[in-house]
Design a binder for these strands. Structure first.
Length: 215
DNA sequence: CCAGACGTTGTT
DNA sequence: GTCTGG
DNA sequence: CCAGACGTTGTT
DNA sequence: GTCTGG
């Protein structure tokens, strides 16, 4: 599953990595800088998404994470449709249409998974892990998207992330080695977030994730 | 038939 | 404990 | 995913 | 809009 992730990549890198076609007017979004430098991306926020135009152009667009099917009655519906299981989405009413006609990619530097700690104290704590490619390269999630029109007429473009069985090739856990690419990437993200280019994210999450980076 | 959901995860 | 909102 | 709410009455 | 549960 994926409920939080990070993206820290300039447009030029995404353009190269995913062979984007430049020139689309939507490509020039004044908030791009904020969208492309985040280490704690949460559902219901706007995220950069790569879509293919009818003419076949690959373009970076900004959509809300949390799918709003065409039959949705209120935007809050999207809060529960942040992931779609790859094994079943073709048959699910919430995802079927989007799966047939509206697929996309969500570029990411890495993503977070939380593991429950069976601490001796009764307190149920969770340990976050940051997962990224060993190469350090930008990755992308498979995604679906929708365009939803609110009763009032406002249009909301939304998306969700396709999930699948855990990848067996994942390394068996973070190394103590400070040179571990995953740790280096997270440390870099945490440092960036604490510096001048800080992004607006919940302080509690920030400290927890920063704590992970520090160990 | 109508009403209500429409999704995922992880778990003693 | 469980749901909602972000 | 996490954080935070979780409820009712009556009212200029 | 379409499926599921009652």
């Amino acid at each position: 599953m994926c409920g939080r992730y990070a993206l820290d990549a300039p447009r030029s890198r995404l353009s190269w990595r995913f062979a984007l076609d430049e020139g689309d007017d939507e490509n020039k979004d004044s908030e791009d800088d904020k969208l492309l430098a985040r280490y704690n991306i949460a559902p219901m926020s706007d995220v950069p998404v790569i879509r293919q135009s009818p003419a076949g152009r690959r373009v970076l667009h900004r959509l809300r994470w949390g799918l709003l099917p065409h039959w949705a009655t209120e935007p809050a519906i999207g809060a529960r449709l942040i992931n779609a299981r790859g094994e079943s989405l073709a048959a699910k009413p919430a995802f079927r249409d989007a799966f047939r006609r509206r697929r996309c990619l969500l570029p990411a530097s890495g993503f977070y998974e939380w593991q429950a700690l069976t601490a001796t104290t009764g307190a149920a704590r969770k340990q976050p892990f940051y997962i990224s490619l060993v190469s350090g390269e930008t990755m992308a999630f498979a995604g679906l998207w929708e365009s939803w029109t609110a009763p009032g007429g406002d249009v909301v473009r939304s998306c969700c992330i396709v999930t699948t069985a855990a990848n067996e090739r994942l390394r068996a856990g973070p190394r103590a080695d400070a040179a571990d690419p995953c740790r280096r990437a997270l440390a870099s993200l945490a440092e960036r977030a604490g510096g001048a280019g800080r992004v607006a994210d919940p302080p509690v999450c920030r400290s927890r994730i920063a704590a992970l980076a520090g160990e």
